[in-house]
Each structure stands twice: as C-alpha cells, then as structure tokens.
Design a protein around this nucleic acid. Structure first.
Lengths: 99, 99
DNA sequence: ATTGTCTTGTCAAACAATGACAAAATTACA
DNA sequence: TGTAATTTTGTCATTGTTTGACAAGACAAT
C-alpha cells in the first residue's frame, strides 16, 4: 500500500463507484485496477490524468502524488536517500533560476 | 552531461588514467566508459561501487551523487517535480521516525 | 446458492536498458 | 605529415522489467 494507491482507492470509495468503472476509464480490466489500488502496479502517467478526470480532482495534485511515489520507490532502499533528494532539489532550483 | 558523469570524468583525469583502465575495472569496453562519462548511459549500482574503489573516493558520496542523478532524471520533465521531491522527503522522514 | 465485486497467480507482449562490436573521429607526438 | 593511441558514435542482440490480459479463486451481499 502506497500513498498514491490508497488515495485512488479512497477517491473511488468516496464516490461509490466500482473498480469496473475505473477499469473502463483506463481501458483495462478490474484485476489491473485492483493491483493499482494495492500498489502492486504503478500507473502510467497517462492513466493518472484519466483518473484525475474521472474523479474530478486536480491533475497536478494527483500527478504530484504519483511522482513522489515513484521517487520514493527509487530511493527507499538507499542509505543516502535523503541526501540524494536534497541534491536533486538543488539541481532543479538551479535550473529554474537559469531559465 | 550530468553531474555524475562529469564527476567521474574529472576523477579519471585527475588521476591521469585511461578509459581503458576504467573499462577493465568495470569489465566493459571503452565505448561504454565513454558513454558513462557523457551521460549517455547510466551506471548500475555495482559499477558505482567499483568506481569508488578505483578512484579511492567515499562510496557513499559517489552513490549519493549517482542516485540524485537518477532522481533528477525521473522528475526533470514534470511541472510538479519540486513538490514531489518534497513529498518524498517527508515520507522518508516519517519512516525514519517510526523505525 | 447465485450474483456481483474484488483479488491472486501466471504469462506473453511491449518496452527499456545494457553491453558488445565495428568503425569513425580526435588527440598526441614522432 | 604519418601513425599509433584514445575516445566517440552508431548499431544491435541480449537481457531485464513492466504492462495488461486471462483464468480462477475469495469474499460479500442477498
């Protein structure tokens, strides 16, 4: 269970819709949706946008949550995780300034 | 050119060794090393450790630089990059506390 | 017991990454 | 300039990973 997967499950349950409907929106089957909601599969970017539309939530918010999950997965097993993230933040800050 | 790739090139040049020797250390060919140094290939974790040994630098430092590069690559094209990184940092902080 | 919903296991197809090779380009220097 | 060493580029088969489909099982509600 990840932040993102819990979130989309919550959204779906709040709206009282079935996995089948989410599946239709993503053109996938319910097994796939089940796995998304349990964090056993990662959504692709395009799917995140479709979900945001379906649930009528802010796309940037949902994308951000999705991306942070991917980042977390990338670094979670490393001692140097925090340090690396901070370095990455600096790099992005620098790029922003120079643009 | 990435931070990491520039760094390993600098290390090599400081020590005045050839790509051929780096290649031997990694059991690869010089073409591969060239690409590493130009950021056209990403090193694997194991290779980073070998490089740290070869250049006699701190493994954690080098791993950290390598990982931050991967993080950066993951988020660099997204508007929500910074926000996502900050969310990931929080998640790691939380995990630390709870352990 | 039947129906609808969700979950699990498995697998082939799609996709991406790696490392090898050959050949071209560049550099060093006799 | 010639040539030997080094580095770079392009290409490609191999390998590894991810995705989404299917079938079957579990669970819940009635």
């Amino acid at each position: 269970m990840s932040q993102f997967s819990e979130h989309i499950r919550n959204l779906r349950e709040e709206r009282k819709i079935r996995q089948r409907e989410v599946a239709a929106c993503l053109k996938a089957d319910t097994a796939f949706v089940s796995k998304l909601e349990k964090g056993e599969r990662q959504a692709r970017r395009e799917q995140v946008l479709l979900l945001a539309e379906l649930f009528n939530v802010d796309k940037e918010e949902l994308l951000s949550l999705w991306l942070s999950e991917k980042v977390y997965d990338l670094v979670k097993d490393e001692e140097v995780a925090l340090k690396s993230l901070k370095t990455a933040v600096k790099k992005i800050d620098n790029n922003k300034k120079s643009r």
